[in-house]
Nucleic acid binder design. Structure first.
Lengths: 321, 321
DNA sequence: CTGTTAGCGCCTTCAA
DNA sequence: TTGAAGGCGCTAACAG
């Protein structure tokens, strides 16, 4: 019995194989504990049945959620997922040093900024298709877009309706850069503030991880006093902000009303429960994989794009308790 | 110029290559945006420079932390990391359906239960070395052990010292199974309770994810009333427990004092800040990689084992606020 | 229905 | 110091 026959059987190709031969192959494979060498397989076929997920800041809860959902979706379809993160260098270029180099059939990238991303070259992708998920508008790419703008504006109006008159935006220092990305949160914030006749106020943190939030917020409060409403770039930062507020004797949800973005698991479990602009994570991930699967099958199809809208979830962090 | 020469240059082997040739190779590689085919490389060398991390419940914050630390450690050493999770089937056997199949040079497994694990066959590992990290005692395996027992007992004594007289243990339903694993938390709990002359009380949840906690805890309280102290299997469950307590009108940290395990980021940011038995995550991960790297280099070295002790961090969830 | 053949891209002798 | 040759384990075309 040749290896070719074995290959036919083991891969379930509907090639004609005698039932008896098939069984013998399966039995022997079982007996010897046969496991295919995927490297050889990949080399021979040119496909790896593996997809990469690139995300910023894997340690943030929102990323965990995206990883989790994407993984579920992909494994249902008998693909593997490699997970890695990227950073941005000071000059805004992609720092790809942390990307896993295992060859893949395609890439799903989360929250890539707008426009041609320096460092995201074709040779990085090695001709493999890329699908983007995120809050920024990307053109000429398969893209699942989550539009934060309407609900960010709604969040601001909500804060106003519960009595806030000084509403600040807590945002990582990519601020100027995000302006060029057309951060929809920022746009929604500015639009709503203008409509309400309020002045914008920005609290800028060095980066988006939790430890960066406290110092920036406390420094701002020390100089300018505390705002009565705080719109946060994401829930992860909201949690750090709530802690910092308590540390300077303010009660989040009472002295300072909070609304964040993302809708992470923590937002409902935290105390007080956090108001947040929720991303439809499952839907995003399912769509991204659908786009990618189609593109892998047929690279020639036209650009696939879809815009989903976030949803405002109101909880005690902005209504009081 | 032959591919062999190119290979020699590109891999930095200290084989004799003329400086001029070397430069030419590098220049051309640069020009053509050459990226090696890792599948081919792996096939030829038999090594992938990739390590797998197997963890339970990737979505839990503690797992994120372990993933993150391990990844840092490994990438420093120019290895890649594939991340996946496993489950246990009802019969206690390993459910390996979610493990990434990309071939690796070794595996780091987090919180494998004690004893021969059904389903963890040699063919699964394909002869590749395994290093285990976790709270259970494993024998005959390279293993970084975190001993929870002393600090669990200390946690119980601490709860007693702040006035708790009815201290329950909140634990996933692997309970009986964990008994056979010799869960050190359980051991510490039982030992300390006995010493204090208190009766043990167990609140068992269906699994260890947050949604399972509320129902079990509320049901328990409805029948037996609330304990005044709660020792939790992990911080993730503590967070869900705190929420459930509030939902039935009890204030965590006052009516019910809480201590969890792990020391996740959330534990400090949560309100009230959570007392917890902290795992030395960075140290664990660094050690695990050190063990694995040594084992990969020389499969013949004797079993490597190390026991680290957890550390009790006391915060307002058990002292009141 | 099954075996033979020829690579996939790279590394590693070995000989020149 | 370099090139040629063989092989890693598998699949895909082509004969038989």
């Amino acid at each position: 019995m040749s290896d070719a026959t074995a290959s036919r059987v083991l891969n379930g190709v509907d090639a004609p194989v005698a039932a008896e031969t098939r069984e013998r192959v399966l039995r022997i494979a079982e007996e010897m504990g046969y496991a295919p060498n995927l490297a050889a397989k990949a080399l021979a076929t040119g496909r790896t049945k593996t997809v990469a997920l690139w995300s910023v800041n894997l340690r943030a809860p929102h990323s965990s959620q995206v990883v989790y959902c994407t993984r579920d979706e992909i494994m249902k379809n008998d693909y593997d997922l490699t997970i890695s993160d990227f950073k941005f260098r000071a000059d805004g270029a992609l720092d790809t040093s942390r990307l896993i180099s295992w060859p893949v059939d395609g890439v799903i990238a989360v929250d890539l900024p707008r426009g041609p991303v320096p460092g995201l070259s074709n040779s990085l992708l090695g001709g493999k298709p890329l699908v983007s998920i995120g809050a920024y508008v990307l053109e000429n790419v398969d893209h699942v877009h989550v539009d934060f703008a309407p609900m960010s504006a709604a969040a601001i109006r909500h804060l106003h309706s519960v009595g806030c008159r000084r509403i600040a935006y807590l945002v990582p220092n990519w601020f100027e850069w995000f302006r060029s990305c057309d951060d929809a949160r920022l746009r929604g914030y500015e639009t709503a503030m203008a409509q309400l006749g309020l002045e914008t106020e920005f609290i800028v943190t060095e980066h988006e991880a939790r430890p960066a939030v406290g110092p920036a917020l406390k420094a701002h409060i020390a100089i300018h006093g505390a705002p009565d409403g705080l719109f946060c770039f994401n829930d992860n930062m909201t949690i750090a902000a709530a802690r910092a507020l308590r540390e300077v004797g303010l009660t989040p949800g009472r002295d300072v009303k909070l609304v964040g973005c993302d809708g992470i698991d923590d937002s409902a479990d935290f105390y007080p429960p956090l108001s947040t602009v929720v991303q439809p994570v499952e839907e995003m991930c399912a769509l991204a994989w659908a786009f990618l699967a189609r593109r892998i099958k047929d690279p020639e199809i036209p650009i696939q794009q879809m815009t989903l809208t976030a949803k405002l979830e109101i909880r005690e962090s902005s209504t009081g308790y």
